[in-house]
């Protein structure tokens, strides 16, 4: 073997192919109020929402990875982000995000663009976000009922001939994470479709209502036809719990 041959072999062998990062895709994320339709709760109250505003931060989009489908279906395939030790396998990774603080105002700003998400290509299955309290920096007026709170819901509840107007102001501890709202999408390098974030008063799988457990008539003891749900009420806690359930949110490609 000649010296030239040895040198050539060594050079060829030591020429490194560089590392390759995942493919990133930038996709707009916007609100879609199409899912806000009247819902009937377990007390036969038909609830129609006219205002839905929720203060959230940091939207994340997750892939299921190679977690087995059978076990995934046991309970909704939802697991938290796993901060895996390098080299140790982990499933359910966050591979898309839209960082920042947002007011999800479906009824007031249907179709509003929240921002542009940074997404890795892959088969997506879920969306996460954190609840927070709205602040003045969100552009709220001083008298805005959402200020200092997490959610503001306004609507009517009707049962038979009885119709009540209601307002709910809800507090959810900052940092409380909603994990695993459905987001079925295959994001490829050429994908352009925006992601629409929806609010679903009715669970599309089990048909449970956001307002299950509430008897609106009982919440109107003075009979003035107006119900107010505020922090500290038992009704507040019931509604807060359902509002934190992932089945009432959905993300979908437009």
């Amino acid at each position: 073997m000649s010296k030239r041959h040895v040198l050539t072999t060594m050079l060829a062998a030591t020429a490194c192919t560089p590392s390759q990062e995942s493919v990133h895709v930038q996709l707009d994320v916007q609100l879609d109020a199409a899912g806000i339709v009247p819902t009937t709760n377990d007390g036969d109250w038909v609830v129609e929402l006219t205002t839905v505003r929720i203060a959230v931060t940091d939207l994340q989009f997750t892939i299921l990875g190679e977690m087995h489908g059978a076990s995934a279906s046991l309970g909704g395939w939802l697991i938290s982000r796993v901060w895996a030790h390098p080299g140790h396998y982990a499933g359910g990774d966050v591979t898309g995000e839209l960082a920042g603080d947002f007011i999800l105002d479906w009824t007031g700003h249907d179709g509003m663009k929240l921002g542009t998400a940074d997404m890795l290509t892959g088969d997506y299955n879920g969306m996460n976000f954190n609840f927070r309290a709205a602040v003045a920096a969100d552009g709220l007026e001083a008298a805005d009922p959402l200020l200092g709170h997490t959610a503001h819901l306004v609507g009517t509840a009707r049962k038979g001939e009885q119709e009540l107007a209601f307002t709910a102001v809800l507090d959810i501890a900052a940092g409380t994470q909603l994990v695993g709202a459905p987001f079925e999408d295959t994001v490829e390098a050429a994908t352009l479709d925006p992601i629409e974030v929806q609010f679903l008063p009715t669970d599309p799988v089990e048909a449970k209502s956001l307002f299950d457990g509430l008897d609106f008539a009982a919440l109107d003891p003075d009979g003035d036809g107006v119900v107010s749900i505020v922090p500290g009420d038992e009704a507040h806690n019931i509604l807060r719990r359902t509002l934190q359930t992932h089945v009432h949110y959905n993300a979908t490609p437009k």
């Binding site: 977690m67 489908g69 076990s71 697991i79 938290s80 796993v82 140790h88 982990a90 499933g91 359910g92």
Partner: peptide
Amino acid sequence: LVFDHVSAVNIELN
């Protein structure tokens, strides 16, 4: 079966 020691979940892989 992979045990994820952070989330304490037995993850089953395809």
